[in-house]
C-alpha cells in the first residue's frame, strides 16, 4: 500500500528465478509488493499479523510470513512464491499430491501450505508425519482438518524424491 508520501526506494530481488526491480516504500509489506506491484496474487492475506501463514513465501530458503516482512528486508534476496512451484507448464509433485489427496478445499490457505511444505521438503526430503505437522503448524486451515494436507505432503515426499 503506498500512501503517496515518504521516501521510496528501488528494490532489487529475484522472485521465482526472475530478477525484478520495484519502486516502493522501504516499510511497505512484502506481501503488498508481491501482490500489488508484481501482480503475484497467489500469495494471500488471511490476517496481516503473522498468525495464519496464508502469506507464506520462501525467502533465501527460509519460510517467512510476507505480511510481516518490510520490503527493504527483501533487497537482494531470492524469493519463491506459489507461482514459482510449477515449471514449464507442469505442476510440481507437491501440487500434484494436493490435487490427488484433496489437500485444497476452499484453497485460500493452499499457497501458504504449499510453500511451508516446499520449504520443509527442501530441508528434509523424507519427513515423519510429526515433522510435517510441526512444519505446517504456523499455517491455519479452516476447511480440511489438515488430514488431507498432511497426507498430500507425505505423498509428495514419497513420490517426488529430490525433484520437488
Amino acid at each position: 500500500m503506498s500512501d503517496g508520501s515518504g521516501q521510496q526506494i528501488d528494490l532489487h530481488f529475484v522472485v521465482n528465478g526472475q530478477a525484478v526491480t520495484v519502486r516502493c516504500h522501504p516499510m511497505a509489506r512484502l506481501l503488498d509488493v508481491l501482490r500489488e506491484e508484481l501482480h503475484l496474487t497467489g500469495t494471500k492475506e488471511g490476517c496481516g499479523e503473522g498468525e495464519c501463514g496464508a502469506c507464506a513465501v520462501v525467502m533465501d530458503g527460509e519460510l517467512v510470513n510476507s505480511c510481516l516482512v518490510p520490503a527493504a528486508q527483501a533487497a537482494g534476496v531470492q524469493l519463491r512464491t506459489v507461482e514459482g512451484l510449477a515449471a514449464g507448464g507442469r505442476l510440481a509433485p507437491l501440487q500434484e499430491a494436493f490435487l490427488h489427496c484433496n489437500g485444497a478445499q476452499c484453497g485460500i490457505c493452499t499457497p501458504g501450505m504449499l510453500m511451508a511444505a516446499f520449504c520443509l521438503l527442501q530441508h528434509n526430503p523424507h519427513p515423519s508425519e510429526e515433522a510435517v505437522r510441526v512444519a505446517l503448524a504456523g499455517n491455519l486451515c479452516r476447511c480440511t482438518g489438515y488430514a488431507k494436507i498432511v497426507a498430500a505432503v507425505a505423498r509428495a515426499a514419497q513420490e517426488g524424491g529430490d525433484a520437488l
Partner: peptide, 21 residues
C-alpha cells in the same frame, strides 16, 4: 468415485481469483 476436485489446479498454482485478487 474419488474424482479429483475440478478447480484444484487453479488453487494450487495461485491462479484462482478471490475477491482480494
Amino acid at each position: 468415485t474419488p474424482v479429483p476436485r475440478l478447480e484444484a489446479p487453479d488453487k494450487v498454482t495461485g491462479a484462482a481469483c478471490y475477491v482480494d485478487d
